[in-house]
Each structure stands twice: as C-alpha cells, then as structure tokens.
C-alpha cells in the first residue's frame, strides 16, 4: 500500500449534441481508446453551457471541465458556439478570482467526423489536469505558483 497511487482526475465534458457528442459517439463506435476520466454531459448546443454549470462542476469536485462544440461556422444553431466561446473566455477570468487554474477549463471544437480528435482531446486534457493535480479550492493560484518556482531553483 506504500506504492503511490496515480491521481485520476475527474473531468466533466459538456458536449454539443450535433458535433462533439456525435464525434464522441464516432470515437466509441470506432473503438478508439480514450481516457475514462472524461464524464460527458450532452447539451443541445455549447451555447447552452451556463457558466454556473461549470462553477457547480468545480464545486462538486471536478478537476477539469471540457466544453466542446461545433467548429466556428458549423453550429447547428448558427452561432451558439460563438456564444460559448465568449462565455468561456470571461469565465476563465472569473475562475482566476476563485483560485482555480484557468487551464482546468478547456474549450474545443470537435466536429461529428472527428472521433479521433475527441479521443486525442480527452487523453491530452486528462494528462494536463493530472499534471495540475487535484483541485483544492482553498488555495489561491499565486500561492500554488510561487513554491513551485522555488522548488525549481533549489
């Protein structure tokens, strides 16, 4: 039991129904291996992702949140993905205020034909969040960053 257990992050993915969810489905149907850490929630459009949903996910203990929608210009609802992009951009600033590393929130464009991209993003993001470590909401980002630098110098 002394052996250190690898940290398995919990990541919530909000996938739009028309592109990213279909892309995830394609990855599954094509039997592509991807990290099981990503737990997906289907929404009709990435524009449906309310910032409070993301904050709630972090509050409930998610270590990372992925928002995935159609490529710009491909939105089934014309421009929902642009709205998602604006929200995510602003939300990242808010996350900093909350002491959450903004890298824990990721926005990706995954089309229905990009099963392979979905698998890649899931794996990449899982590794990225794993490197960031478990989310500890009490810590301020500055407090996290400073000691790390000193460690490197030492």
């Amino acid at each position: 039991m002394n052996q250190q257990q690898r940290f398995e992050p919990r990541i919530v993915g909000f996938l739009c129904n028309w592109c990213s969810y279909t892309g995830a489905d394609l990855a599954g149907v094509s039997r592509m291996k991807s990290a099981p850490n990503l737990r997906t929630i289907r929404v009709m459009c990435s524009g449906r992702v309310d910032p409070t949903l993301v904050l709630r996910a972090f509050q409930l203990g998610a270590d990372g949140v992925l928002v995935a929608g159609c490529h710009p210009g491909d939105c089934h609802y014309q421009e929902g993905n642009y709205k998602a992009m604006r929200r995510v951009l602003l939300l990242k600033r808010v996350l900093r205020e909350f002491g959450i590393d903004e890298r824990r929130l990721r926005l990706e464009w995954i089309s229905a034909s990009e099963g392979e991209k979905f698998a890649r993003v899931a794996n990449e993001f899982t590794e990225q969040v794993r490197a960031l470590g478990p989310l500890q909401l009490e810590e301020a980002p500055a407090a996290v960053a400073e000691p790390q630098l000193e460690e490197v110098r030492a």
Binding site: V43, M44, C45, G47, R48, V49, D50, P51, T52, L53, H76, Y77, G80, K83, R87
Partner: peptide, 20 residues
C-alpha cells in the same frame, strides 16, 4: 438550443429536456 437559458440573468427560462 438553450442559448437563452444559459444567458437569462434571472433564471426565468427553462430549457425542456435540458433544464438547469
């Protein structure tokens, strides 16, 4: 699509099937 649901500052909009 639910864009309005996500945007409503009062939470007055319900998106059936994908409500808050």
């Amino acid at each position: 699509c639910g864009t309005c649901v996500a945007a409503c500052p009062a939470g007055a909009i319900t998106g059936y099937g994908f409500s808050d």
